[in-house]
Simulated assay, not measured.
Amino acid sequence: MTEIETRLAELEARLRAVEDEREITRLILSYAPLVDSGRAPEVAAIWDEDGVYDVDEILMSSPAEIEAMVRSGNHRRWISGGCAHFAGPPHVTVDGDEATAVGYTLMIVNGPDGFVLRRATANRWTLRRTPSGWRAVTRTNRVLDGREESPALLSSAFPE
């Protein structure tokens, strides 16, 4: 391989890494506006066919269950009452066709006295490259209420 071919291959690898991180970030950040607008099929499509969404009070083991959650009466009441899921930018680590991302989400709800923070959570995503692009394999959310597992989710992206 010539020097130019080597440099071109290195440049292509770097560009692919940037594109992967961008696609993963966009996928993760699409969750909040999609779930807050009730777009159930699009929310479910964030996950791969064997995807799992593990929230403190619910375990959803398939995109169909995730779609059902978005269509549920409870979720519809959050939307109609006024709510916003706000996601901070994720810290993404790509390793070939697998990736992890960690970050925070806030759920803000409208109440009698205006908007209030309902919950703050730590999030850990595992993702894989599929023929349709990056998809979530697992998303684990834990409330940041002092329990040890919540910060452990965040630190899992930063091996010692």
Rank of each mutant, 00 (worst) to 15 (best):
R22S: 06
P90K: 00
F86C: 15
A9D: 00
G51A: 11
V35M: 08
I79N: 02
E21N: 07
S150F: 02
G103A: 04
R119Q: 13
Y31D: 01
A136C: 14
P90T: 00
G146W: 14
G146L: 15
A17D: 03
V35Y: 04
A84E: 01
A84V: 10
G81C: 01
R16A: 14
V116D: 13
R14I: 05
G111Y: 05
E5T: 12
W134Q: 01
M69I: 07
H91N: 06
T25D: 08
R142L: 12
N123A: 08
E149H: 09
L11I: 12
L11P: 06
L8R: 15
G82I: 07
S132N: 14
L117A: 02
V52M: 13
A9C: 01
V55F: 07
I24A: 04
E65S: 10
T2K: 10
G38H: 08
Y53M: 14
T138Y: 11
R7P: 00
S61W: 10
G146D: 09
I66T: 00
S156V: 13
L11K: 08
E19H: 10
L27P: 00
L117V: 14
T121R: 01
I4K: 13
R135W: 04
T100P: 10
A17Y: 01
L59N: 12
D56A: 11
I79E: 01
E23C: 07
S62D: 06
P63R: 01
V18H: 02
G82L: 06
V109E: 14
R14M: 05
R128A: 15
L29E: 10
G73P: 03
S72N: 08
G114L: 11
E49H: 02
R147D: 11
A136Q: 07
M107N: 08
A44M: 09
R76T: 14
L154H: 02
L34H: 05
P159T: 04
E148W: 10
E21I: 09
G133A: 13
D113T: 03
A9F: 01
V143A: 09
S155N: 03
S61L: 10
S61N: 15
L34N: 03
G88C: 09
N74R: 06
A99N: 01
A68I: 08
D48F: 05
V137D: 14
